[in-house]
Amino acid sequence: MRIGELSRRTGVPARLLRYYEEQDLLHPERAANGYRTYDESAVRDVQQIRGLLDSGLTTEMIRALLPYLGGADAIHPEPECVSAETAALLRAHIDRIQARIDCLARNRDRLSAYLAAVRPRTDATAGR
């Protein structure tokens, strides 16, 4: 399939698909006329890349991780497959996610406490 069809099937603009190629995340074949051609697995690959980007991974991290992913939900389990550098990138990302979770939990707790403190006054004055 050509880039336009891949774009339609994944909902990812062609410009981004070319960017993923520049970042060494996608590897299309080139037809004699220079057009990019993708096989059916490219749909799954783009969906996987989008999912990883949406989870906050950088293209650098995805490039390091992609060789270890076997499909949309499969990861090669062999520990020797993951280099120390890749493991460190993932650990740092996990730490950043956890810091965001902790911050969100603190904010949720503060907002809940505030709402509990003001709600009796809000309920009492709502009938006026």
Rank of each mutant, 00 (worst) to 15 (best):
residue 7 S to T: 03
residue 88 A to T: 10
residue 64 A to R: 14
residue 18 R to F: 07
residue 8 R to W: 09
residue 5 E to M: 11
residue 5 E to D: 14
residue 25 L to T: 07
residue 5 E to I: 08
residue 24 D to R: 13
residue 65 L to W: 09
residue 15 R to Y: 12
residue 100 R to M: 06
residue 93 H to R: 02
residue 16 L to W: 04
residue 38 Y to E: 08
residue 51 G to Y: 01
residue 21 E to H: 12
residue 104 L to S: 03
residue 56 G to R: 10
residue 10 T to W: 03
residue 62 I to T: 04
residue 68 Y to H: 11
residue 23 Q to I: 00
residue 117 A to C: 07
residue 63 R to S: 11
residue 65 L to A: 02
residue 47 Q to M: 10
residue 35 Y to I: 01
residue 125 T to M: 15
residue 74 A to P: 00
residue 74 A to G: 00
residue 22 E to A: 15
residue 123 D to F: 06
residue 127 G to E: 09
residue 21 E to I: 02
residue 108 R to I: 09
residue 127 G to M: 05
residue 111 L to E: 05
residue 52 L to E: 02
residue 112 S to M: 11
residue 70 G to N: 08
residue 124 A to R: 10
residue 68 Y to Q: 10
residue 92 A to Q: 13
residue 36 R to C: 05
residue 19 Y to N: 05
residue 40 E to P: 00
residue 57 L to I: 02
residue 103 C to R: 14
residue 95 D to G: 09
residue 101 I to H: 11
residue 90 L to P: 01
residue 77 P to R: 12
residue 38 Y to T: 04
residue 108 R to M: 11
residue 4 G to C: 05
residue 77 P to V: 00
residue 46 V to S: 03
residue 15 R to L: 11
residue 59 T to W: 07
residue 109 D to T: 06
residue 113 A to K: 13
residue 126 A to L: 11
residue 14 A to K: 06
residue 123 D to E: 15
residue 110 R to C: 07
residue 20 Y to H: 05
residue 22 E to V: 06
residue 118 V to W: 13
residue 105 A to H: 10
residue 54 D to I: 07
residue 59 T to V: 12
residue 32 A to I: 04
residue 26 L to Q: 11
residue 50 R to P: 01
residue 123 D to P: 00
residue 60 E to R: 14
residue 109 D to Q: 13
residue 101 I to G: 04
residue 2 R to V: 07
residue 15 R to K: 14
residue 38 Y to N: 06
residue 54 D to K: 14
residue 33 N to L: 04
residue 99 A to M: 09
residue 28 P to C: 07
residue 119 R to C: 09
residue 33 N to Q: 04
residue 7 S to I: 04
residue 124 A to G: 01
residue 2 R to Y: 15
residue 75 I to N: 00
residue 99 A to I: 05
residue 12 V to P: 01
residue 51 G to S: 08
residue 9 R to T: 00
